[in-house]
Design a protein around this nucleic acid. Structure first.
Length: 191
DNA sequence: CATGGGATTGACT
DNA sequence: GTCAATCCCATGC
């Protein structure tokens, strides 16, 4: 995918990523849930400005921002908006597509709905780690490629698990998918 | 250098 | 519904 795709407004990128395919280490899945984060709102790591942690967010779009959450999980984001603007799309859930047995082994779970239905789950299933921070998503090892399917119906809701800017409706999910994470508040259908 | 807080998950009540 | 695990890093002294 050409990085120009990621240069647009981060919410548009978050919406457009639904249906795209994430690949790594013999596994792949279709994105069914994303969230947008932007430097102008306090839930975004880039809100504090450029630090060693956030420098990737201010870099060119189309690169991976991977960080450790709660000391336990690695979370995958796609950097968006032009270089110099801190913004990214959190990849929150996938529908497993390839390498499902490998995902089961990595996750220690059998049910296909439990393999990638959360931001920490999908990185474990795909073997994505902090070392992938800063990687080019068009070249790998972690890649995101465009969807072949028509534009999907998307549900919009508020972001999950944050304590600031909780009112922003910046969470996008594939309508009706059974592979989205289930920890959020009720979904409000839109666009 | 010490401290505090998570863009979560899974086990348990 | 409640809660601990666990570590990176931003902040403050």
């Amino acid at each position: 995918m050409r990085s120009v795709f990621y240069e647009g407004e981060v919410c548009a990128v978050a919406r457009a990523l639904i249906g795209c395919v994430v690949r790594h280490g013999g596994t792949a899945g279709v994105i069914v849930e994303t969230e947008a984060y932007h430097e102008r709102e306090p839930a975004c790591h880039a809100y504090v400005g450029r630090t060693p942690r956030t420098i990737t967010l201010f870099g060119p779009p189309g690169y991976a921002y991977v960080y450790r959450s709660y000391g336990v999980h690695a979370l995958l984001n796609a950097v968006a908006e032009p270089e110099g603007v801190g913004a990214a799309v959190l990849i929150r859930a996938l529908e497993p597509l390839e390498g499902i047995e490998l995902m089961r082994a990595r996750r220690g779970r059998e049910r296909i709905e439990e393999l990638c239905s959360g931001p920490g789950k999908l990185t474990q299933a795909l073997g994505i780690e902090l070392a992938h921070n800063g990687g080019d998503l068009s070249r790998g090892p972690v890649t995101i490629t465009a969807a072949g399917a028509p534009v999907p119906e998307i549900t919009v809701s508020r972001r999950i698990g944050i304590t600031r800017a909780v009112e922003l409706p910046w969470r996008y999910s594939l309508a009706g998918s059974r592979f989205v994470s289930r920890r959020g508040s009720s979904l409000a259908t839109a666009g």
